[in-house]
Nucleic acid binder design. Structure first.
Lengths: 256, 256
DNA sequence: AACTTGCTGTGGTCCTACCACAGTGAGGTC
DNA sequence: GACCTCACTGTGGTAGGACCACAGCAAGTT
């Protein structure tokens, strides 16, 4: 960004300024204050002085320590919060204030949702990305899933098997089903990204479901595919589960 | 606000309060002001009144329009900026101020990097996620890559073929090679996520390269694999390119 | 015609003050 | 002595005002 600024300032006198710049006069770095705060926090994490679960100094103290205003600190905290890196709470006591955590899920979801809304990425792109990630989720889940995961999957399947299940409930449980598989994979990054993509598409998928001429039939077909996926997972057949997941996701979008 | 006080006062007498809550007294929603601002902005985008490229009202005007302080608006802007949804600049004129854009790349990179630093996600997880995404990138690139993409790839390959190439240069060009393939896929979401993961691992990979006993030999092997990938892409063999990419990434981490 | 100058609107920063909240402990009440 | 009440303290949350730096624009000057 500083490049653009310096270039802009020199626009009116490019000829005269070029010589000066070449003579070693680099433009002054003018990072925004809150970015400096971010850098300091990141440096503390990199150096190991701060780790997940630790508590950051109070905003006022941090501002004084860094020699910046509290506003700058707060804006940096906002960014960290938006990245799912910290959680904040009021009050006094040990656990009050700003605590370093690690919850990338919600942050990823919001990020993807915003860019889908802005048409920065198309629905088809999200579908392909989902397939790529959920294939991996399914493949890993076939060998990493635990009893509790299978119990959860069974529960979701039971709800979706109900013929009186509403589109809203079905959509929620469908999401839960895929998210459960993702977390059963044991790969947190894949799981979080899978969850984010699925959640970002939640509204879109619900609209499609509600717009179905024969919701019952569609739900029944999707439920059957879910059962097949679950059976493959139970059998430990990762490759087959991956293929089934791909066909499951691809099929829904292709047909509607 | 008196509601919050009463809720707090009930903490010490949960038993007595339960009945009251069950009687339909839902707790008052207490969202932070900047989140309300975010909701309004998102609503404007959802409704179509605001789209990429549009300019948001000035912070002061937006604050007045929403009936909140400028601080709240600024914090919301920070979040949007951290998500890569807006760009801000000073000055007056048509393009000055806050503009809705769509640059998820940098935001994703920072997000992933922070969570890797916080050990929220392990290196092995990132590798598996990379493989899943880059397989898809390669598969799509085999059929979607243009002349200009191949020209870029050839250029990166030439630099990496240089025996005197430094680890830093090699690492940069290696990143460029993979990122070029990702963008050649035509799937922006996959491309951005691939780029983010590769960039987040940049420092780690460089350390490994620099720590090699025989950097030349490793570089030669990686370069050879790159050439094979490129040939598969040129031949339009997506499946083979995907397998080669997987072996390429997996191999480097497995052996070092 | 070309340059200079000041005005205006924008984000960037800081300060101060105050509010809401949650834990803590001193003090009073039973 | 056990219990309850209540003020205190430290935390983030919000507000308003002030000023700065910057970029464009228009009027004035040379």
């Amino acid at each position: 960004m500083s490049d653009q600024v310096s270039a802009g300032a020199l626009d009116d006198a490019v000829d005269a300024a070029d010589g000066v710049v070449d003579a070693g006069w680099a433009p002054v770095t003018k990072a925004r204050t809150y970015e400096l705060v971010l850098d300091r926090v990141e440096a503390q994490i990199t150096s190991g002085r701060l780790r997940a679960g630790d508590r950051l100094p109070a905003e006022r103290d941090l501002a004084a320590a860094l020699g910046v205003s509290r506003v700058a600190v707060r804006e940096a905290m906002r960014v960290l919060q938006a990245m799912g890196v910290i959680t904040q709470s009021t009050g006094s006591g040990r656990d009050a204030g700003t605590v370093l955590t690690a919850a990338p899920g919600e942050a990823l979801t919001r990020l993807v949702r915003m860019h889908v809304l802005l048409a920065s990425v198309g629905t088809a792109d999200v579908v392909r990305a989902r397939i790529a990630l959920e294939r991996e989720s399914a493949r890993l889940a076939a060998t990493h899933a635990r009893e509790s995961d299978h119990a959860l999957l069974t529960e979701h399947l039971a709800v979706m098997d109900d013929p009186d299940c509403s589109p809203e409930t079905f959509n929620d449980r469908d999401t839960d089903f895929h998210v459960t598989i993702a977390h059963a994979s044991g790969n947190r990054l894949v799981a979080e990204m899978t969850t984010a993509l699925r959640n970002a598409m939640r509204a879109t998928l619900l609209e499609r479901l509600q717009g179905e001429d024969d919701f019952r039939a569609v739900a029944a077909r999707l439920a059957r595919e879910h059962h097949e996926i679950h059976e493959a997972l139970l059998a430990g057949e990762g490759a087959r589960a991956a293929d089934l997941v791909e066909a499951h996701i691809e099929g829904f979008y292709a047909r509607h």
